[in-house]
Amino acid sequence: MPPRASPRDPPGSIPPPPAGPAPAAAAARAVARATDPDPDGDLARRAASGERAAFEALLRRHYDRMHRVAWRMTGSRHDAEDVVQEVCCALVGRIGSFKGEARVSTWLVGIVLNACRDLHRRRTTLARLKEGLAVLARLGPAPDGRDLFRRTWLASALARLDPALRETVVLVVGEGLTHAEAGQALGVAETTVSWRLHEARRRLATDPEERHGA
């Protein structure tokens, strides 16, 4: 059992145990992943060279995963569907630039996270104003309070974290990526990922009201 990092240790000094499903299984998966060739690598190459069937197969294979990540990031089914649709369309142009430096699933999840980030930015000031006005003008629907999934999300730890930490938690805890893979997907160093996880753990452990500001 690897030593568990106590709050006293500087982050990253003791690698945090892979959380999520049983640590042994996750560790085994990570080892297996490191040595296995990417099952989608072949598919991605064929899609990049213009094979329609391969592209469609790739999308079908990863649609669920992308939707799950998007939902966990945004908390809304509607947003998740929008994001994944945009990403699928954007993939048409991006598949050609995939060089195989990461696993396809990691790369796709990275694109989805980017798109969620963009959505969040677009949404923050403008859309709320617009939605408010639209509701006022009866042009748009009022938010549905009966969405149970949204309520679950709001009640969960994900809603309490800010987006950067949330991304990391979704990748490592939710998808079971290793820190290195998560770093690739997010475009940050592996130690940054470890640090973010430690930070997320710390924030969730302390009183939710007590959020330190910058």
Partner: peptide, 24 residues
């Protein structure tokens, strides 16, 4: 320290089909 993440809704067939169609 990490409670299990919420599972989320299953992607609807209609949304999936729409996305695939648009992409293709």
């Amino acid at each position: 320290p990490h409670p299990p993440l919420p599972a989320g809704p299953e992607p609807s067939e209609e949304a999936r089909a729409r996305a695939l169609a648009a992409a293709l």
